[in-house]
Design a protein around this nucleic acid. Structure first.
Length: 232
DNA sequence: CCCGAGGTGACTATTACTTCA
DNA sequence: TGTGAAGTAATAGTCACCTCG
């Protein structure tokens, strides 16, 4: 965009220290076909339409480029050391200001544009991964809630059946011990307290959760208003 | 040796924001 | 003070290359 890759005739090379085959990757780098373009003059990629003046202008990163003579995209593989430094830096601050970018580039023997691209990709891929994790988490939440909902529906049906068969027994039995949470006020209530809570509601007007079978399995908050005794 | 999947460097298009005339 | 153009940075989407099983 702003930083155009029209740096004609610039060769892409790792600094000598980084080129040392200390790692598997670096070693491979030196013997693989990639090596050929590490020393290859770079031309604009699909930007063959770049005008001569653009080509000479040179972007803010005048070391831009990255493609071979045939116009294909050629990739530099970062060494483990370089990646580690970039990772550390990313953990510290996921976005770089120009000075940090330049410093990192110098430290790693890369072009600022490469550092910039690395951070762009890192942000994008981190976000993507996080989205996947979130999605997975929400899926599990959904499954759990669906199961819980099913269970509550079943419970309601059983209670209704019981009420029809023997109302006397139903009147005197202790309520189910289900814990429920009001979706609106998020107060958790044990339904064993519901009877007391009902009377409580009448007297104090506080928000309570109705666990009456008629609630169709959904916890309903009879919340007139948060009428809690003010603590003076 | 071939092939597909996954990782990753590089690029383009788009959008949002800032600055300045 | 409001406004449009230009510049800049970030992001989304994609391509291309490479490695690995």
């Amino acid at each position: 965009m702003m930083e155009r890759a029209e740096d004609l005739g610039l060769s892409l090379s790792l600094s000598s220290s980084l080129a040392a085959p200390r790692t598997h990757v670096a070693a491979m780098l030196l013997r693989s076909p990639e090596k050929r373009f590490l020393e290859m003059p770079l031309l604009p990629a699909k930007r063959s339409e770049v005008t001569p003046e653009e080509g000479l202008r040179g972007g803010s990163d005048e070391e831009d480029g990255g493609c071979g003579l045939d116009g294909s995209r050629k990739k530099l593989r970062l060494s483990k050391d370089q990646s580690a430094v970039l990772e550390d830096s990313f953990r510290e601050h996921p976005t770089l200001n120009p000075r940090q970018k330049a410093a990192l580039a110098q430290q790693l023997g890369l072009r600022p544009r490469q550092v910039e691209v690395w951070f762009q990709n890192r942000r994008a891929r981190t976000k993507l991964k996080q989205t996947e994790v979130d999605c997975e988490f929400l899926k599990r939440c959904c499954e759990t809630l669906t199961q819980e909902n099913r269970r509550l529906h079943k419970e309601v049906q059983e209670l209704r059946a019981l009420k029809l068969v023997s109302p006397h027994l139903y009147m005197h039995m202790s309520p189910p011990t289900t814990l429920t949470m009001c979706p609106s006020c998020e107060r958790v209530s044990s339904s064993a307290n519901s009877a007391a809570a009902s009377s409580d509601r009448r007297s104090a007007g506080g928000a309570v959760i109705s666990t009456a079978p008629a609630a169709e399995g959904a916890a309903v908050c009879h919340r007139p208003i948060a009428v809690r005794p003010q603590q003076s």
